[in-house]
Simulated assay, not measured.
Amino acid sequence: MSVLIVIPARYASSRYPGKPLAALTGATGESKSLIQRSWEAAKQVKCASRVVVATDDARIREACQAFGAEVVMTSEACTNGTERCAEAYENLGGGYDIIVNLQGDAPLTPHWFVEDLVDGLERDATAEVATPVLRCDGRALNGFLEDRANGRVGGTTAVFDCNRHALYFSKEVVPYTGQSFGDHEMTPVFHHVGVYAYRPAALADYQTWDSGALEALEGLEQLRFLERGRALLCVEVVARGRQFWELNNPEDVPRIEAMMVEMGMP
């Protein structure tokens, strides 16, 4: 089973311009860019046959080449990471069994999240796409609720059926719980981890579809699959003591740096 990991990265983010080049300082005091830390996370994935960064920006390309990453240039017309992964896959000539989209704003993604994701897609022949979900403890859920209360777009939550096929994803906190939880108490809310594994045919189809109403409203690329009735498997992953958070806003930088220090990440 050959696995290609693509890290899509764009400079012109509406919420955080230049985000891939934002500096993050770890436990040792060493500062590295967000894209470098995401690439280093991808390189730890044991099942990866190849890791590339896909971008349309020369500044990102130069920064990535400086720390040794392979870069594939893609079009500025790509509207999201899935489209950029699809174009990068085509530019590389195809030939992989599974393509993983490890988004460049998730440097805390543990390698076993991706490995479990690939395993899940291999086991479920009915699924065309897979993505990890992480059950929130009270601390994580309270972070989500705090972001929404202050008008910030934080993490994404997911709900799924008894077969673990996705029903919906939202930037709101779903499902509604109506209760409070202690920091270490497990909750019924699942944090969607920004990683996807696609079968090549599903990735090719995605490029041919227009964005649907739900995708446009939520700003969540995976909803395009659900709006087309495609089976998207949610693979529950276990943190094993690791904290996880994406860098969505400038305010997330100190939060992620604090997590890195707490976990002893260099």
Rank of each mutant, 00 (worst) to 15 (best):
T187M: 04
V153K: 14
V193D: 04
R242T: 06
D56E: 07
V129N: 12
V129E: 09
E262L: 11
A201E: 10
A158M: 03
F144T: 08
V189D: 13
L232T: 15
I35E: 05
R15C: 09
P17S: 00
A127R: 12
F244C: 11
Q179P: 01
Q44G: 15
R148A: 06
T187N: 04
Y11Q: 02
D119F: 09
S31F: 00
A127K: 10
G104A: 15
P17W: 01
Y198F: 12
T74A: 11
Q179Y: 07
F181Y: 14
G155A: 13
L121H: 02
T177A: 06
N248V: 08
R15N: 12
E215G: 01
C78Q: 13
C85I: 06
D210Q: 15
A231L: 06
S170D: 09
V153F: 07
L214P: 04
S38I: 06
S180N: 08
N248P: 04
R139Q: 14
R164S: 12
P8K: 03
G229C: 03
A127Q: 07
V118Q: 01
T208G: 07
R148G: 06
G29N: 06
F67E: 10
L167Y: 08
G138N: 11
I98N: 05
E146H: 12
A86P: 11
H111K: 14
D56M: 06
G93H: 04
E227G: 05
S211D: 15
V52P: 08
V100L: 12
M259L: 12
M260V: 09
L108H: 03
G68P: 07
A42C: 13
E30G: 07
